[in-house]
């Protein structure tokens, strides 16, 4: 072996994994932050993610353009969000129940339309080799950064700015924190929540396109393995803060890369246990931040799970 770097391979592989695996987490959780800050919870983003993966892949196969796939994934995601938002605007409708229904609907629809696209190969999304300065192939591989990852960072920063310094951002926070105050200001909470859910859905759709068009980079029915649901937990972990979402997504991504990293340095026993790391982390996070006695700080006041 020319480049035997021993145990250093593990942190490098985790770094690379964190960057590669975190992008869908990032997009879905940003979408969920937007939705939840407006006072609704959309559990259906898992379905949106899977459908986005399928729609993006299919479009890329048909048109030969990966970016066309991303756009179609975003559009289909926003349609799912719109549907969720409109249904939840009806009286006496529970957003969590609708979210679960939308999750099953989205995955079912994706499997139905996705059957013919399991075989064909679609073009990949471009990546930027940020590791060009290094001689280590492991580091180069790890720093192969996809454009969507960078867009995700910009999106997180943009959302943080939006919540702080734009009218739209303040209005979303008002609606999410107090329906009464929003009504008193002459705002229409249901409309704003629906639009926020639709936009959040578009983000989740883009996350799906990343899955099928870059990493792992193919369309199959097990492509998401619950990442959409984990992203919802991640939003709570990140306290509804877009920038914290980025950190949390990296953490979850790194946890997801633990298993493959151990395998790559030759750990042959028990490494598959580490494949469960993201799920264990999800449980651990939810237990760690739960408390029977204290209200959650930072939670939007109108959220049905925190009311």
């Amino acid at each position: 072996m020319e480049h035997d770097i021993g145990l250093w391979a593990i942190p490098i592989a985790i770094l690379g994994g964190a960057i590669r695996v975190s992008t869908p987490f990032l997009f879905v959780s940003l979408g969920e932050v937007l939705t939840e800050r407006s006072g609704r919870i959309n559990l259906g983003l898992e379905g949106t993610l899977v459908f986005g993966a399928m729609a993006g892949y299919a479009t890329a196969v048909v048109t030969g353009s990966a970016w066309a796939g991303v756009i179609v994934a975003a559009l289909s995601g926003s349609l799912f969000g719109l549907l969720h938002g409109l249904i939840c605007s009806l009286p006496k409708v529970n957003d969590i129940a609708i979210g679960i229904a939308m999750m099953l609907f989205g995955t079912g629809l994706a499997f139905y339309f996705g059957k013919p696209f399991i075989q064909p190969v679609a073009p990949d999304l471009p990546a930027i080799p940020l590791g060009f300065w290094s001689d280590l192939p492991q580091l180069r591989a790890a720093l192969e950064v996809n454009v969507l990852f960078l867009i995700g960072i910009v999106l997180a920063l943009g959302m943080a700015w939006m919540f702080r310094a734009t009218r739209v951002g303040l209005i979303i926070r008002v609606v999410g924190d107090s329906t009464d105050a929003a009504r008193a200001m002459g705002l229409r909470p249901a409309l704003i929540r629906t639009l926020a859910t639709a936009t959040g859905g578009a983000f989740a759709g883009v996350g799906g396109a990343y899955l099928s068009l870059y990493y792992p980079g193919s369309w199959n029915e097990g492509i998401s393995s619950g990442q959409g649901l984990m992203a919802v937990a991640l939003v709570i972990f990140a306290r509804w803060n877009p920038i914290a979402c980025f950190g949390a997504a990296l953490l979850f991504g790194g946890a997801g890369a633990l298993g493959p990293a151990l395998q790559s340095v030759g750990v042959t026993q028990g490494y598959y246990l580490f494949y469960a790391a993201p799920y264990v982390l999800t449980l651990g996070v939810l237990i760690a931040i739960s408390s029977p006695n204290r209200a959650m700080t930072g939670a939007p006041g109108e959220l049905s799970i925190t009311k």
């Binding site: 303040l170 209005i171 926070r173 924190d177 107090s178 105050a181 008193a184 930072g298 939007p300």
Partner: peptide, 18 residues
Amino acid sequence: YQHFTLVPSLTAAENLVI
């Protein structure tokens, strides 16, 4: 009003401006 119509998580300045 008898009950506050301010938005609890927004700062006073944000409440005034919005």
